[in-house]
Design a binder for these strands. Structure first.
Lengths: 184, 184
DNA sequence: GTCTATAGGAGGATAGAC
DNA sequence: GTCTATCCTCCTATAGAC
């Protein structure tokens, strides 16, 4: 008979916390902030609602811990090429933590703020890479297009975009991005 | 002394109902479905919550009466040109009833259904107008771009798109739309 | 036609047992 | 470390007075 694996309380806690976070991410991504309940997250994670509150303090803090947009900056080099690579990353797998923010940002202030904040750097780095006139508006259009495409593909799922191969999307969008990035 | 204008009960009712609908549209557009309360709509319309329920029966029905996407079809002729005209319409004034749907469609099923339904015709008419290969995906991308731009301009308001002149936006987007519409 | 009053339920948060 | 029990607030919806 082998010893059963002993887990310290700290390990146990990390494990449970991770399960809760994962459940929270998925629920927020699917239902948005208002409609996800602590109760539902707890059920999905296999724990009691009180424990979720005990770990995270409030629904707000749970959301803050579970949902975030990764910081992103455009690398130097040909801007159109870099933008298409960034878009490829976003098209190749559903980024659940990001979807939680995207799903919630229209109705929840904290999510909107997170989106705005991540967007500032992102927009700035695109603007600086654009040699043509009206860089702010061009950058804004590029960002709006990318958000529109991701949102349609993962959240709305009402068009051919939902399951089109990333390569096809990128190929069709290339002239679009190139004209906006204004290669000189 | 002139007679004070007599208003029949029917007139009175139409008037009050219109005020409630207008208040509902604005509140739904600003806060989305879940966060707008019957109470808030009633307060904005200057009536009691009970009256709103009495007229519309439920919050769902109030939303259905207040929020809708106008049916839209692409007119025959040069598709790129028609698409740019459609985009111009959407850029020249905030369509409050539409914004209520757009704001709510990520978290409220009825709004999502309304968007999908209006999108079906719209996507179909774009597909049929596109002579190039992969018309479904091209149409989906065009629609996603237009939604992304409108959402960014009116709902997120975090970029230069929020107050750019419609003409500038259209000019920058023209090559984009033309390449996707695949002029032959 | 419009209002008051209240039922009834859902969900976030808290306190304390084990 | 996890669970039970409960409080409190807010909301939709209903019933009926004026």
């Amino acid at each position: 008979m082998t010893e059963p694996p002993r887990r310290t309380r700290a390990e146990q806690r990390r494990d449970t916390e991770a399960r809760i976070l994962s459940a929270a991410r998925e629920t927020f991504a699917e239902l948005g902030y208002e409609r996800t309940t602590i109760r539902a997250v707890a059920a999905a994670a296999g724990v009691r609602p009180g424990l979720v509150m005990h770990y995270f303090g409030s629904k707000e803090e749970l959301f803050a811990s579970a949902a975030h947009l990764p910081a992103d900056e455009l690398p130097p080099g040909d801007p159109a090429q870099a933008l298409l690579s960034a878009l490829r990353r976003r098209l190749e797998g559903a980024p659940v933590a990001s979807l939680a923010v995207l799903r919630s940002m229209f109705t929840h202030d904290e999510a909107a703020e997170g989106f705005r904040e991540a967007g500032r750097e992102w927009l700035g780095s695109i603007e600086r890479a654009i040699p043509a006139g009206q860089p702010e508006l061009r950058a804004a259009l590029i960002a709006a297009i990318m958000t529109g495409v991701v949102v349609d593909r993962y959240l709305l799922k009402h068009s051919a975009l939902a399951d089109a191969p990333a390569d096809d999307v990128l190929e069709l969008l290339r002239p679009c991005i190139e004209s906006l990035a204004g290669a000189r």
